[in-house]
Amino acid sequence: MMADLWTVVWKEWKEWLFRWGGLRKEGGLLGVLVFAGVFGVFLPLQMGLGWVDSPAALSYWAWVPLFLVTTVIADSFAGERERHTLETLLASRLPDRAILLGKVLAAVGYSWGLTMASLILGLVTVNLAHGQGTLVLYPAKVGWGIVVFSLLVATLAAGAGVLVSMRAATVKQAQQVLSIGIMLLAFVPIFGLRALPVEWRVRLAQTLGAAGVNKVLLIVLAVLIVLDLGLLMAAMARFRRAKLLSD
C-alpha cells in the first residue's frame, strides 16, 4: 500500500513540478519559486520581527495551505478525466485507496511542504535582516500551531477538493466550486456573526473569553480533525470506478 501511495504521489509531483519544460508553463517549479520568494523573502523583509513573533501569524499561515491545495487538487480527478488518462489509471492494478489517498497525500505534501519551507526561509530572512546578532525564533506555541493547523487545513482542503474533483467534468468546474467554497468559508463566519443578535454575540465573546485561547484552539483543532476524517471517509465511500468513468 505504501509503495502504491508513493507511486501516485511521485506522478502527481512530477506533473506539477518537474514536468518537461516545467518553467515555461503555468504553475510548476516557477510557481513554487515565486511563492517561496514572496512568503519566504519579500514579506519577512517588509514585516521584520513581526513576521516571526506576532500571534496573528497563526491565522494567515493557516490560510496559505488552503489556497495552495486548491490550485492543485481540482486537477486530481477532473484533470485526469479531461485529459483522458483516468480510465487507463483505473484499469491498472492500483487499489482504490492508493489512487484516492495518493492524490490527497500529494496535494497535502505539496502545500504543507511548501508552507513549511517558506516558514523556515522566512525565519532565515528575518534573522539575516533583522536579527541584530541574536537568534530570532517563532514562539513555541505559534510555531507548533502553524505546523499543526496548516497540516489540518491542507488536509481539509484536499479532502473537500478531491470530493469535488471526483464529480466535476472539468478542472475549471472543480476550481469554480472550490473557489465558492473558500469564499463561503471566509465570509459566512464574518457575516454570520454580524447577523446574530447583540446579546448572543456578547454571550459568545464571554464564553470564548472564559475558555481562554488555548482551549479555543484545542476545540478548533478537534473540529478540524473530525472534519478531515469525515471528508476522507466520504471521499473513500464515494470512490467508485464505474461512477468515476460515467461522470
Binding site: K11, K14, E15, R19, W20, K25, R83, H84, T85, E87, T88, L89
Partner: peptide, 8 residues
Amino acid sequence: HPGLYERL
C-alpha cells in the same frame, strides 16, 4: 484514448 500523461 492512449491515456498518456502528455506533460511527462
